[in-house]
C-alpha cells in the first residue's frame, strides 16, 4: 500500500488528475449501464412482467449485450442533415453531464476540484446540457426531431429558473457555494439536514430535476406516442447510445445532488442519536450512495406510475407554481436565518 502511495506521489500532477477522473468515471459508467438494467427490471415488476432475463444469469449480461450491439450498428447520417453538428450533438450532450462530477464531493475532502463556486458551476453545467438536444433536433433536418428540440429548449429554460431559486435557498441556509461546506453545514443528524427547513425547495428541486433530464412524466421532448422519439429520432448506433448515456448520467447526477444538498450527503443519519457509534464504521460514501439510490429509484417509479404531462400544463407548473413558491420560500429562509429559528441557523 505504501509502495502504491509513493508511486502515486511520484507521478506528474496531470497524470494524478487523469487517474482521479478515471476513478470517478469508471464506476459511474458501470452504474449507468446497470441503471438501464434496473429500470427495465423495476418497471417490469411494477407492471407484473419479468423484464430482461435471457442474457446471463437473471439477465445481468443485458446492458453489456446492448452496449456491444449498439457499438456495431451503423451510424446513419440523414440526407440534408448538417453532418458536423449532427455528430457533435451527442458529445455536447454527454460532456456537461460528466463535467459536473468534477466538483462533486464524495466524502470530506474527497473531491476532484474543491472550488469555491461549486454550486454555481453545477448549475452552469446542468444548464448547458440542453445544447446537445437542440443541436441534435435542428441538425437532423426532420420535423419530429425539430419539434422535440423546441419543446425541450422551452422546458429546460423554464425549469432551470425554479432549480436555480431552489439552490439559492440552499445557499442562504448554508452560507456557502462550496459543496463540501454545504454538507458540513448539515451535520448533526437527520433533523439537521436541509430537507426540513427547505422542504418546498427540496420537492421543487427534485421535480425540476426530473423535468430538466426530460424524464417521464416530463418527457415531451421524446414523447414516443406523438413525435416518435423526439430529438434523437434520426440517431442510431453509438451516436444514439451516447445520448442514452448522457440521459442516465444526468439522472444519477440530479439524484446525487439532491442527496448532497438536502439529505446531508455523506453524513450518517444516526448522528447525534444513541445509534451513532453502532454505525460509525460505515464509510461516508456508502451513506451518500444509499441516499442517491433512493432518488434514482424515484425516477424509475415516476416513469412506471405517471402519465405524460400535457405541454401547457408543464409550462403552468413551472412558471405559475414552482417559481412563486421558490421566491416566497427564499424570503422565509432568509427570515429564519436572520431570526435564528431552528437548529439549522447559527
Amino acid at each position: 500500500m505504501d509502495f502504491l502511495i509513493g508511486l502515486y506521489d511520484s507521478l506528474p500532477v496531470a497524470i494524478q488528475i487523469i487517474l482521479k477522473i478515471v476513478v470517478i468515471m469508471g464506476p459511474l459508467m458501470v452504474l449507468v449501464a446497470y441503471y438501464t438494467y434496473a429500470e427495465r427490471k423495476v418497471i417490469g415488476y411494477m407492471q407484473v412482467r419479468i423484464g430482461p432475463n435471457r442474457v446471463g444469469p437473471k439477465g445481468w449480461g443485458q446492458p453489456i449485450a446492448d452496449a456491444v450491439k449498439l457499438m456495431f450498428k451503423e451510424i446513419v447520417l440523414p440526407t440534408h442533415a448538417d453532418k458536423t453538428l449532427f455528430l457533435i450533438a451527442p458529445l455536447l450532450s454527454i460532456g456537461p453531464a460528466l463535467a459536473a462530477w468534477a466538483v462533486f464531493p464524495f466524502d470530506t475532502g474527497l473531491v476532484l476540484a474543491d472550488i469555491n463556486a461549486g454550486l454555481l458551476y453545477l448549475l452552469a453545467m446542468t444548464s448547458i446540457g440542453v445544447y446537445g438536444v437542440i443541436i441534435a433536433g435542428w441538425a437532423s433536418n426532420s420535423k419530429y426531431a425539430f419539434l422535440g428540440a423546441i419543446r425541450c429548449a422551452a422546458q429546460i429554460v423554464s425549469y432551470e429558473i425554479a432549480m436555480g431559486f431552489a439552490l439559492v435557498g440552499v445557499l442562504v441556509v448554508a452560507g456557502s457555494l462550496n459543496l463540501g461546506q454545504i454538507v458540513e453545514g448539515q451535520s448533526g443528524g437527520f433533523w439537521n439536514w436541509y430537507w426540513l427547513p427547505l422542504l418546498p425547495l427540496f420537492v421543487i428541486y427534485f421535480i425540476s430535476g426530473v423535468a430538466e433530464t426530460n424524464r417521464a412524466p416530463f418527457d415531451v421532448a421524446e414523447g414516443e406516442s406523438e413525435i416518435v422519439a423526439g430529438f434523437h429520432v434520426d440517431y442510431s448506433g453509438m451516436a444514439f447510445a451516447v445520448f442514452f448515456l448522457a440521459e442516465y448520467a444526468n439522472m444519477i447526477l440530479i439524484s446525487a445532488l439532491t442527496a448532497l444538498m438536502f439529505l446531508g450527503g455523506w453524513l450518517s443519519p444516526f448522528q447525534g442519536t444513541f445509534m451513532e457509534s453502532w454505525f460509525a464504521w460505515v464509510p461516508g460514501i456508502i451513506w451518500l450512495v444509499a441516499k442517491t439510490f433512493v432518488f434514482m429509484f424515484l425516477f424509475l417509479w415516476f416513469r412506471a406510475t405517471f402519465p405524460r404531462y400535457r405541454y401547457d400544463q408543464i409550462m403552468r407548473l413551472g412558471w405559475k407554481i414552482f417559481i412563486p413558491i421558490t421566491i416566497v420560500w427564499i424570503v422565509v429562509a432568509g427570515a429564519m436565518q436572520v431570526y435564528d429559528i431552528g437548529p439549522w441557523y447559527q
Partner: peptide, 25 residues
C-alpha cells in the same frame, strides 16, 4: 471565477438558448 461561471450560466445557458430557439423558428 464568479463572473466567468455566471457568464456561462446566464449567456450560454439561458440567453443563447432562447436566441437559438428564435433563430431556428
Amino acid at each position: 471565477e464568479f463572473l466567468a461561471i455566471v457568464l456561462v450560466l446566464v449567456y450560454v445557458g439561458a440567453v443563447m438558448v432562447l436566441f437559438l430557439f428564435v433563430i431556428m423558428m
